[in-house]
């Protein structure tokens, strides 16, 4: 276990942090969206995949994995925005729940913010080295 963290750099921890936050976000998304019957599987799967890849990137020496994780996070984020576009249109007209009944605005906004943070953290990790020279 000690060896896992031995020569990891700040960049690696950014990748790990993004993965942890991504996993948390994926879990929250799953619970929320299933409960309101607005679950988009691709959003969840990509977010989860990104978290897994990001975690693997922390563990292994494969330096392209942070890039792959970033791609997963970014696609998940974009698809989530697209999926919720109608909800924001309803917010603008102050009519809630016409065909989006059950959607909770603040939860969606929170999820999008978390996803945005995950993307940014993953991008930052890609700019940094992942290992100290051993």
């Amino acid at each position: 276990m000690k060896g896992l963290f031995r020569d990891r750099t700040l960049g690696a921890y950014f990748s790990l942090g993004a993965a942890c936050l991504g996993l948390l976000t994926a879990i929250v998304y799953l619970i929320y969206s299933v409960s309101v019957k607005l679950f988009a599987p691709v959003v969840f799967v990509l977010l989860l995949l990104g978290a897994i890849v990001g975690a693997v990137a922390f563990v292994t020496r494969e330096r392209t994995l942070p890039l792959v994780a970033t791609a997963c996070y970014a696609f998940s984020f974009a698809l989530h925005i697209s999926d919720r576009a109608l909800m924001f249109a309803h917010m603008a007209t102050n009519v809630y729940g016409m065909s989006e009944r059950g959607a909770i605005l603040w939860v969606v906004v929170l999820l999008l913010i978390l996803q945005c943070i995950v993307v940014i953290a993953s991008v930052i990790s890609c700019f940094m080295k992942q290992r100290n020279a051993s």
């Binding site: 330096r63 392209t64 942070p66 890039l67 970033t70 791609a71 996070y73 970014a74 696609f75 984020f77 974009a78 993307v119 993953s122 991008v123 930052i124 890609c126 700019f127 940094m128």
Partner: peptide
């Protein structure tokens, strides 16, 4: 790698 990641996110 960083620029690719950032630009990929922008591209998406």
């Amino acid at each position: 790698r960083g620029l690719t990641a950032a630009w990929l996110a922008f591209f998406v």
